[in-house]
Amino acid sequence: MKISKLLSPELIKIGLNSYSKDAVIRELIEILEQNNLLNNPDEAFSAVMERELKQSTGLEAGVAVPHGKSNAVDELVGALAISNEGIDFDSLDGKPCHLFFLLIAPPHSAGQHVSALSNIAALILNKRFKRRIIEASTPEEAYAIIRQAENEDI
């Protein structure tokens, strides 16, 4: 599933108020909650944190992909937060994270979940995409950058 089909400007937040991993994930969960995509925000938070305890989803080069499976959602949902300054997310390279892609899928939705994660993996390999989206000043601009990156010709 393309990220531009999963997200919309309403599911993108520019600038975060948090300075810790827990708080960033809470903020991402709040985006889903505000868009009425969660049945149970606490359960969704626990599912994502459970995965974080196994190994941080803070990857390298400023990207984090917190994700989990939970009955708190009826279908695959996602949110994106962008921090120009960067936040410590216990990432694998020890550097601050700027892009936070949150994905939560119901237990029996593995295909879509894997497909969406795969599309995030492709996006974050694109250095130009990363540089542009970190500098986006509005959710609409960030969304347009995702859409363009996913649909650009090769």
Binding site: K54, Q55, E60, H67, L92, H108, L117
Partner: peptide
């Protein structure tokens, strides 16, 4: 192939790859 690529990209850990493989097989 996609599951292995996600582990290679460090988005999945190995246990998770096995877990999702099982889920996809059940689907």
């Amino acid at each position: 192939k996609t599951l292995k690529n996600l582990t290679k990209a460090k988005i999945f850990i190995e246990l998770e790859e096995m877990d999702y493989e099982h889920d996809l097989e059940e689907d």
